[in-house]
Design a protein around this nucleic acid. Structure first.
Length: 259
DNA sequence: ATGACTGGTAACACCAGA
C-alpha cells in the first residue's frame, strides 16, 4: 500500500495538478494540506470519479486538510484535541481495515510559526505540545499509525540547502526542534531517514529562483509508529512534480508499506 | 547570488505562506 502526503497549496488552483498526479501514481491514501477552502468548496466529485473516498476538514481562505482513500473509512476524526477555542483546521485522521487489522493515518498541517516575535510562534509550540500528547495516546493503541503532513520543521542540517540561512526561523530553531525530538523519542520514526541518509527536499520557495537553484528544505514528513515502521518498504519524494505547470511549492512524499 | 512568487479574498491592495 502506498500512502502519500502533499501540501497542495490551494485545491481550487491545483485540481488539474492533483488529478494528473493521482492518475499517474494511483496512491492508495493521500493526505492534502492547505486546501484553503471550506468543505463545500472541495472538488469532491472530481476526486471521487478517480475512485477515492474523500473526507475534508476545511476552513475559509487558509489551512484546511483532506484525506483521499481508495479504502473505505472505518472512522474519521477532525481537529487536534486539547484546546476547544482553536478554530484552525489542521488535522484529519482516518482508520482503515487491512488484512490482519487496522491502520491509522493522521494528516496534519503543523503551524508555520513565523514571525517568531508574534503570537504565531507560541501557537506553533503549543500546537506541537498538544500533538505530542495526542501521539502518546495513539502509540498506546500499538497499531500501525502514520502521522504525516507538512510539519513546517527542518529536522537536521542536511535537510536544508543552506541550513545557516534557516537557523533561527520558526522551522529551524531550538524550541521547535525540541518538540520534534520529543515526538521521535516517543518512538515515532522519520520514514525517509529509515530508508536514506541522502540529502532530499520537499519544498522549494516560489521566490528567488529556489527551484532552479535547488535551494530546498525537507519539511514534509511521514512519521511512523513501531508497528508501521516494521512494514515500511520504501519512501519516494516526487520531486519532478515541482517542475510541472502551476506547481505547488511542496511535492508529494509517498511511503510504500507491506499492508 | 545580492535574486522575490503565489492563492484567496476582496476590491483595483492586503494577508499569509516558509
Amino acid at each position: 500500500m502506498r500512502i502519500a502526503t502533499w501540501n497542495i497549496n490551494g485545491i481550487k488552483a491545483r485540481l488539474e495538478l492533483l488529478v494528473r498526479w493521482l492518475e499517474e501514481e494511483k496512491p492508495d491514501i493521500v493526505g492534502l494540506q492547505e486546501i484553503k477552502t471550506v468543505d463545500e468548496g472541495f472538488p469532491r466529485a472530481e476526486i471521487e470519479a478517480l475512485g477515492y473516498n474523500v473526507e475534508t476538514h476545511g476552513q475559509k481562505s487558509w489551512n484546511g486538510v483532506a484525506l483521499l482513500s481508495k479504502l473505505p473509512f472505518d472512522e474519521v476524526h477532525r481537529r487536534l484535541p486539547g484546546r476547544d477555542e482553536d478554530e484552525q483546521a489542521r488535522l484529519i485522521e482516518g482508520v482503515f481495515s487491512v488484512e490482519g487489522g487496522v491502520i491509522r493515518v493522521c494528516n496534519i498541517y503543523l503551524p508555520n510559526g513565523n514571525p517568531v516575535d508574534t503570537e504565531k510562534f507560541p501557537y506553533k509550540l503549543e500546537w506541537m505540545d498538544r500533538l505530542n500528547r495526542f501521539v502518546q495516546d495513539r502509540l498506546a493503541l500499538e497499531e500501525p499509525f502514520i502521522l504525516m503532513g507538512d510539519f513546517n520543521l527542518i529536522p537536521a542540517p542536511i535537510d536544508a540547502h543552506d541550513p545557516a540561512a534557516w537557523w533561527g526561523d520558526a522551522l529551524y530553531r531550538p524550541e521547535s526542534l525540541e518538540k520534534f525530538r520529543i515526538l521521535r523519542n516517543m518512538g515515532m520514526t522519520d520514514a525517509l531517514r529509515a530508508i536514506s541518509a541522502e540529502e532530499a527536499y520537499t519544498f522549494w520557495d516560489f521566490q528567488a529562483g529556489a527551484w532552479r537553484r535547488n535551494a530546498g528544505i525537507r519539511i514534509d514528513h511521514l512519521m511512523l509508529s513501531p508497528q508501521a515502521a516494521d512494514r515500511l518498504d520504501d519512501v519516494v519524494i516526487h520531486k519532478d512534480v515541482r517542475g510541472w505547470d502551476k506547481p505547488s511549492d511542496h511535492v508529494p512524499v509517498e511511503g510504500a508499506f507491506s499492508f
